[in-house]
């Protein structure tokens, strides 16, 4: 069976700096995969390489078996790849609802629409006319997730959903993920919070300084193993 997403020996640079070195990763349809690692380990770079915001210097990214090197970032949405970027990146001059509507600009057919997003995050319904910058961090993150869902993605990339949020909010946001998966969306998430990541993921990859140093089913890995890989303690 072809993997939904397959990254093969990808290396990505920022100028001279090699942020990703020969990283390989695959995501099967329906599973939840987490990528953990410290700040600067290359997690966001990996997601940006998958969405096409960055081009790998070498290696391939395949989506549903097809090499998507030549597909520009804005066309990958139509393939079914959506991202919740780190720091949420809502459009400040747009209202909550306008942000969500933009997410559905290139929507594929599927279960998600404005009404469903408001059902998933009821708080947002009362905020629909507000400018997105006036919302709390947790509400903004909910908008960012809703915005990505609006295009009915096959693969949802979540970049540091928990960043800067209170634990109770993080639980609420992660609590929404099963419903997302029920709608037929596969999730690849990036987290600094290892416990959170291991709790929701089927499989975990651990990046250290741009390399993949550990991978395996979340159930088979101990927190201690991941922690070692996370900090590079084995050296």
């Amino acid at each position: 069976m072809t993997a939904l997403l397959e990254v093969e020996r990808a290396s990505t640079y920022y100028g001279q700096f090699r942020a990703l070195s020969d990283v390989g990763l695959d995501v099967q349809e329906g599973e939840t995969v987490a990528v953990v690692g410290a700040n600067g380990a290359g997690k966001s770079t990996l997601l940006r390489t998958i969405t096409g915001l960055l081009r790998p210097a070498s290696g391939t990214v395949r989506f549903e078996g097809r090499d998507i090197a030549d597909v520009p970032a804005y066309q990958r949405v139509s393939l079914g790849i959506a991202m919740v970027p780190e720091g949420r990146k809502l459009f400040p001059s747009l209202s909550v609802e306008e942000n969500l509507m933009l997410g559905g600009y290139r929507a594929r057919p599927g279960p998600w629409n404005l009404a469903r997003v408001y059902e998933l995050f009821p708080l947002l319904a009362s905020r629909r006319k507000q400018r997105s910058v006036t919302l709390s961090g947790g509400e903004q993150q909910a908008v960012a997730i809703g915005r990505a869902l609006m295009c009915n993605p096959r693969l949802l990339l979540l970049d540091e959903v928990s960043l800067g949020l209170a634990p109770v909010l993080v639980r609420q946001l992660y609590g929404a993920l099963p419903e997302v998966q029920a709608g037929g969306t596969t999730i690849l998430l990036v987290e600094q919070d290892v416990r959170q990541a291991m709790a929701v993921a089927d499989r975990v990859y651990c990046l250290l300084e741009g390399r993949c140093v550990l991978q395996g089913p979340a159930a088979d890995l101990t927190f201690e193993q991941v922690r070692q890989a996370y900090f590079g303690g084995a050296r």
Binding site: L53, A73, Y74, Q75, V77, K89, S93, L102, R106, C151
Partner: peptide, 11 residues
């Protein structure tokens, strides 16, 4: 507002 994020929306 943000060209990069706009491209993530398929724009």
């Amino acid at each position: 507002d943000d060209r990069q994020t706009a491209s993530l929306m398929g724009i």
